[in-house]
Amino acid sequence: MGRITRNFAVTRVSVGADGRYFTDTRADTVAVEEPLELKVNNTTLTTTMRTPGDDIELIHGFLHGEGLISSRVDVAEARYCAGTDEQGQNTYNLLEVDLAEGVKAPGPEFIRSVTTTSACGVCGSTSIEQIMDKQAHPIEPVELDPQVVISLPEKLREGQKAFKRTGGIHAAGAFTLDGEPVVIREDIGRHNAADKVIGALLLQDRLPARDLILVMSSRASFELVQKAAMAGFPALVAVSAASSLAVELAREAGMALTGFTRGERFNLYSGALKPVKQLSESACPPAHLDV
């Protein structure tokens, strides 16, 4: 299996207020980005740029997000094939998938002639109507607990082992409605990280994810909301901003969506919150202040 990080010699530059600068050369750890070619029923479907690791989960999540499979039994076999480097070592950058008998093979409309970058998700789906038509798991709306929401980014960060070493890799995580981690995955591409989480849940027969929250270390794009909706997540929590189309899709799908979830604050773009807890009769009343 390929490495997820590599070390490079870098020169760190510190610039002073007077314009003078100082340099220091040392080793730095960066996240690996390599292509993964996906073949389905002997036909190349796409090539995506990803961080090696959890590739089987990645392709299951990807195929689920495309609406090509709905459960793990839809895949008869997934295997690495011969893809070698200059030294003749397997690069693990080619995966072949055989769909189960009776599962419809992807048509020409699914085949992408260009490489999917680590910043791109399911770019072929461009309308909310298309997503709603393909959605296999209708979302059951939930009320979010604000205390749980603000705790999720830090809990996600605690599971980001590669981020601690590189500072340059995205993460996605599935958490219970009470904030307990179920699956956390990392990747150079935020969409790949989401696919790895969804693929892991699919392989565990945990889709639809009606009792889970998808948490992203990135912004909430249309493609990420699409993947969450297809998997049946009732909520998506993002550390950064949400796009306009992401908000529209979340509202149409009945999904709770938060953005800028940092510290003690977040923006609620879609969905509802749990009612504020009321003081019990035995609780001390608020003090009266004479002004």
Rank of each mutant, 00 (worst) to 15 (best):
L212E: 10
S240C: 13
E186S: 04
G179N: 03
M216W: 07
V183W: 02
L144H: 11
A229V: 15
S127Y: 11
L236V: 15
S217I: 08
S240V: 09
L156P: 00
N192K: 03
D205S: 13
D133M: 13
A220W: 02
L202G: 01
I128P: 00
P141D: 11
I169H: 03
Q130C: 09
G167Q: 08
V197N: 00
Q204W: 03
G199P: 04
G173T: 08
A235L: 06
V197P: 00
R165C: 02
I131H: 11
D211N: 15
F222C: 07
D187F: 05
S127P: 11
R157P: 01
R165W: 06
L152C: 02
L207V: 14
L224K: 14
A231V: 00
V142A: 09
Q160L: 15
S240R: 15
K155I: 05
I213N: 08
N192C: 13
S151Q: 09
Q226E: 12
M230W: 03
E180F: 04
I184Y: 00
F233A: 05
R219Y: 05
P234N: 12
Q226V: 04
K134D: 14
D178F: 00
V182M: 07
R210F: 09
L152E: 00
Q204Y: 02
A174I: 03
A242I: 13
H137C: 06
D187W: 02
P138K: 10
K164M: 11
S151I: 00
A241D: 15
P181D: 06
D133F: 10
A242D: 04
Q130W: 12
L152R: 00
A172I: 07
I184V: 13
D211A: 14
S218K: 06
R219W: 04
M230V: 12
L203N: 14
D195P: 01
V149C: 07
E158M: 08
S221Y: 03
M230P: 10
V142D: 05
V142G: 05
M230F: 08
V237P: 13
G124I: 12
A171F: 12
D145S: 14
V142F: 06
M230Y: 05
D211V: 09
V239P: 04
S240D: 15
I198D: 02
H170I: 01
M132P: 11
L201V: 03
G199S: 03
G173P: 05
I213E: 10
I139E: 01
Q204K: 12
Q135L: 13
A231D: 10
G168D: 12
V183D: 02
K227G: 01
E223F: 07
R210T: 14
M230S: 08
P208M: 12
R185W: 03
H191C: 07
G167F: 09
A174P: 00
E186L: 02
E129L: 13
V239A: 15
K161D: 12
G189I: 04
R157I: 02
D187R: 01
L152A: 00
P146L: 11
K164F: 09
A220K: 05
G189L: 07
F233I: 02
A235F: 01
